[in-house]
Computed example of a mutant assay.
Amino acid sequence: MTLRLGTRRSALALAQSGHVADAITRLTGVPVELVPIVSEGDVSRASLAQMGGTGVFATRLREALLAGECDLLVHSLKDLPVAGAPGLVVAGIPPREDARDVVVTLDPGGLGALPTGAVVGTGSPRRIAQLRRRAPRVNAKDLRGNVDSRMQRVRDGELAGIVLAAAGLSRLGLFDPAEDVDGPRPGLGAASDLYLEPLGLAEWPTAAGQGALAVEIREDAPSPVRQAVAALDDAASRLAVTIERAILADIEAGCHAPVGVHAEIDGDEARVRSVVYAIDGSTRVGVDRTESLTGGYSRTTGGGNGAIAADGADPTARAALIGSAIARRLLDRGAAGLVSRESPQ
Rank of each mutant, 00 (worst) to 15 (best):
S274N: 03
E269Y: 08
D268W: 01
R218F: 01
A236I: 01
R218Q: 12
A228G: 05
R273Q: 08
D266G: 09
L239G: 09
L248I: 05
Q227F: 00
A240M: 08
D234T: 04
A228V: 08
V272G: 02
R271S: 15
V215L: 09
H256G: 11
A253Y: 00
D268M: 09
E216L: 04
S237R: 03
D250F: 03
Q227W: 00
A240G: 04
A231P: 07
V215Y: 05
A278Q: 12
V229S: 08
E252M: 04
P224W: 14
R238L: 13
I247W: 00
E252Q: 13
A221G: 12
D268I: 02
A246H: 12
V215R: 02
V229R: 10
R284E: 15
C255D: 14
L239K: 10
G254A: 08
G260F: 09
D234F: 04
I243G: 07
H262Y: 12
L248A: 08
A263S: 15
D280M: 07
C255T: 15
R226V: 15
I217G: 09
I279W: 09
E269M: 13
V272E: 02
A240I: 14
H262N: 14
V261R: 10
S274R: 00
I247R: 05
V275W: 11
R226L: 14
T242F: 01
I243D: 08
S282M: 11
A240T: 10
L248W: 03
I217V: 15
I217H: 06
T242P: 12
P258M: 03
D250S: 13
V276Y: 07
I217F: 01
A263M: 11
V259N: 01
D234V: 10
A231E: 13
V225I: 15
A246I: 03
G254C: 05
A221D: 07
L248K: 02
S274E: 04
T242D: 02
S282P: 00
I279T: 15
E264N: 07
S274W: 01
G260L: 04
V241G: 05
H262C: 02
I251C: 05
S282G: 14
P222T: 07
R273Y: 00
H262V: 14
S282F: 04
I247Q: 01
V261S: 02
A236S: 15
R271P: 00
I265T: 04
E216M: 12
E252L: 09
V272S: 03
A221Y: 10
S237A: 15
V261E: 07
V276T: 12
D280A: 12
G260S: 10
I243H: 07
I217K: 10
G267F: 12
R271N: 13
V276R: 09
V276S: 09
A236Y: 02
G267A: 11
L239Q: 12
S237K: 04
E219Y: 01
T283R: 15
A235V: 13
D234A: 06
V225M: 06
D280H: 11
V259S: 05
I217E: 05
I247E: 06
R284Q: 14
V225K: 06
D268Q: 14
P224E: 14
A240R: 12
D233L: 05
T242V: 11
D220Y: 06
D220C: 05
A249L: 13
I251S: 05
G260K: 09
V272A: 06
C255Y: 00
A235Y: 03
C255F: 01
T242K: 09
V259M: 01
G260D: 13
V272F: 04
E264H: 05
A246T: 07
